[in-house]
Amino acid sequence: MKYVIAQSAEEALKALKDAEGRGTIIAGGTDVMVELHEGERTAEVLVDITKAADLRGIRIDGKEIVIGSAATLSEIASDPIVRQYYPSLCKGTGSVGSLQIRNTGTLVGNIVTAQPAADGAMSVAPLNPVIVVRTFDGEKRLKISDMYVGFGKTALDTSKELVTEIRIPVPEKDEKASFVRLELRKSLSLPMLNAAAMVKYSENKVVWARITMGPVGVGPTRAAAAEEWLKGKELTEENMAEAGRLALKDANPRSNPLRGSREYREHSLPIIIRRVLEDIKAQF
């Protein structure tokens, strides 16, 4: 096995090209290493992007927050810019695994592994992020929903493509977000359910709402029916509860031997969605 330490996005792409499909990008590596050791993955070339200066850091670019693909979950969770605009993203990225995992793992990795209950991915999902991907031919800009093709399956070909950054619009004053996790244990555990939302709320009316939830489908799943229903409505207790109930229309949770049966998840999802909305309302 060959290990390439890329100093830039350009170098990383070149290393992938040289590997002719036998390479893979590694950032945190928290999942890749385990999979390699378990024989669940083979790679002849690992392309490490953690030292690529142009892929690191978190900054404001005009009206967007730009999170480099090599920025760790810890860096995001404690970043002052992120904290100022999206405390919910701090909470979500700060809920993944453990501090040690967050010190090496990245938000992009949390999306690319395509775990449907990934806390980092969930908390960024309703923020309308744009995922910037460099390929051998150029660049493409994907929505978060474009990132998943199946349970645990990413749309990204990590032997050919490189996420360079995530761009998140800076919220308007009347836009707030939230993230809630239903957990058996704080650290070292995937949630039973998680949900996140962002709402534009003007003159006591929902202008629009984006609600995502998991694990109830492929990747962070939009609660489309609830979002639609909320439009123009006030965030009252009854309306938030109703939105929670409507979220079930878009949810297809499975039973997990540890993290809750389908029945329990169906029971709890409306409550979690309601609590996400309550948390948003409390911010106005």
Partner: peptide, 16 residues
């Protein structure tokens, strides 16, 4: 300066 779980860190991540 950061705590990491060394069992899942590829050794070459330690470069430099």
């Amino acid at each position: 300066g950061k705590a990491v779980t060394s069992c899942i860190i590829p050794v070459m991540r330690a470069e430099g």
